[in-house]
Design a binder for these strands. Structure first.
Lengths: 187, 187
DNA sequence: GTCTATAGAACGATAGAC
DNA sequence: GTCTATCGTTCTATAGAC
């Protein structure tokens, strides 16, 4: 039995049948697994969700890390934005999962919720540690991520339409036009 | 029996115990009501959630409508932003509920999800009907709302801290600094 | 309209054989 | 490690008395 299969099916299940229908019973049915077997590898349903959260964050950051830093700063930030949008459009199950977890008590909020933001910040400002601006940058990044989640929720999940280049540009421009983080990055 | 009490307790319950613990049984226990009685007034749990979504949208828009349009455009948009943030910080149960519903199949997504956005748009551009820019404005507003949700999720719900004036200003400036919607509004 | 009682299904999780 | 069988609970929803 592969733990990763459980994670992947869990995400897929939440995407297809929504959170309240994604039960342990459904997971084992899809994987043709016995409940006993699943519970030998996972302590609880909660643990499955936590591992799924880790996996989702990893996948997102892994994707962002692929974006080349060559070219000017603004171009890099645009590519980051575009790459994130394209990734979440393609990996709809990850988008659905992250949206689903917001109103639940499955995750340790303190740890999980800022996980992606902090990794994202490191990616942007590897070398620096401007403590004073830390909160400001995290505020900006949470605004950015929140926008992406909501826009994709409405467009991809509700309207079933992918964003076009113009819309991606609009989003990128809104956040990285000429603001604090951009200046920070320029130093 | 007052239907509004059911809605209010439902929101409160989701805030306190999170979505997966908020059952019909818990609702009737808190209101010292019988299940039979509740189901005489509501067809299903789903219907309760739908009414709660209507109520939440109404409350938000009602609050935004209170903001006076006097003064310059930028000042008005700042006041709108500030008012929305303060409102959702105070009415945490509405914020929690809206976040909770995103990953579920309780609501008719097509109807509910854009409900607030469309009402918000009308509030901003009462008289106008610039069809071409319609999608662009809705994109901007969904970015705006998404940012507010995410920032408040992290700050209010996770870190348990209210936003300070500087942060509110940062958010307002990011969206209404000098962009399309602001120009639109100036015409 | 409101109650009590309960049907009927699904849930998370475990015990114990292999 | 993986299985079958099932425990104990909780859930949404309804039937029927008042």
């Amino acid at each position: 039995m592969d733990k990763k299969d459980v994670i992947k099916i869990t995400l897929e299940l939440i995407k297809e049948k929504k959170l309240e229908k994604a039960s342990v019973g459904e997971i084992v049915k899809r994987l043709e697994l016995s409940p006993g077997n699943l519970y030998y590898h996972f302590r609880s349903k909660n643990e499955i969700y936590k591992k799924a959260a880790d996996y989702s964050a990893e996948e997102i950051i892994k994707n962002l890390n692929k974006v080349r830093k060559k070219g000017d700063k603004k171009g890099y930030l645009y590519n980051l934005t575009r790459s994130l949008i394209k990734f979440l459009e393609e990996r709809e199950e990850i988008l659905c999962f992250l949206l689903s977890m917001k109103g639940t008590c499955f995750l340790d909020k303190e740890l999980e919720s800022q996980d992606i933001l902090i990794k994202f910040k490191k990616l942007l400002l590897e070398e620096k540690n401007s403590l004073e601006d830390d909160n400001k940058i995290l505020l900006k990044l949470s605004m950015f991520m929140g926008s992406i989640y909501e826009v994709l929720y409405i467009n991809k999940l509700v309207k079933k339409k992918s964003l076009n280049e113009e819309e991606i540009q609009e989003i990128s421009e809104s956040f990285w036009g000429n603001n604090m983080l951009n200046n920070e990055y320029n130093n």
